[in-house]
């Protein structure tokens, strides 16, 4: 298990270097996104102006203070459960060129195949560790679709963001799948001891 530092947006090669279980710290720019944002993009067929090529998306609904003129100050920014949003994975890769999705709790197995095919990864953050996460977001640089507040598209400039764990890599390995399979195997043995 290797330790990486990567600047986003990035390209397919850097993403394919990552293996499930690796640690990664992120610099550069990442994009906050959530259920409503993706419902608009995919179910309502609207395309945002923000360029998502090579992007790392973060599943979040940030707690912010409006400063006027579309500027916002961060208050507390954390991460939400990713599993609800799994159905958008393939579209994000094909239509938008997204390279990485960061969230908590993992994505179900249906994300494994598109991530392998399209060269995408799932990066696990520590759910609930919002105090730390907030200090690693340097600034909110842009916001789009403010009418969906707080489920807008958020452009964050980050530094030392993480450490994140590669939960699903671009080679068909998912830690979540493997941990579940192992747990189910162990359960069979545990049942006998009840």
């Amino acid at each position: 298990m290797a330790d990486y530092r990567l600047t986003f947006p990035t390209d397919e090669q850097h993403v394919r270097d990552l293996r499930a279980g690796d640690s990664i710290v992120v610099d550069g720019h990442i994009v906050g996104i959530r259920d409503r944002t993706q419902i608009r993009m995919f179910d309502e067929g609207r395309r945002p102006h923000m360029d998502l090529r090579g992007a790392l998306l973060l599943h979040t609904a940030p707690n912010v203070r409006p400063l006027g003129n579309g500027r916002y100050e961060k208050l507390c920014i954390g991460t939400t459960t990713s599993a609800r949003m799994v159905r958008f994975t393939e579209g994000l890769g094909i239509d938008y060129g997204v390279r990485a999705i960061c969230g908590k709790g993992g994505l179900p197995d249906e994300a494994i195949e598109p991530m392998r095919r399209l060269g995408m990864v799932y990066l696990a953050i520590v759910g609930g560790a919002a105090a730390l996460e907030t200090t690693q977001i340097e600034e909110i640089e842009a916001v789009e679709w403010e009418d969906l507040m707080p489920e807008c598209l958020w452009l964050f400039r980050v530094r030392d963001f993480g450490p994140l764990t590669v939960g699903i890599d671009a080679h068909g390995t998912s830690l979540y799948h493997d941990v579940q399979a192992e747990a189910r195997r162990r359960l069979e043995a545990l049942y006998d001891r009840l």
């Binding site: 609930g128 919002a130 105090a131």
Partner: peptide, 20 residues
């Protein structure tokens, strides 16, 4: 490690431990 660090940061920054 990250959880323990997060709790320390929440103390220092007087921020919420978790956003929820």
């Amino acid at each position: 490690d990250t959880i323990v660090r997060n709790v320390e940061v929440a103390d220092r920054e007087d921020n919420l431990v978790c956003q929820d």
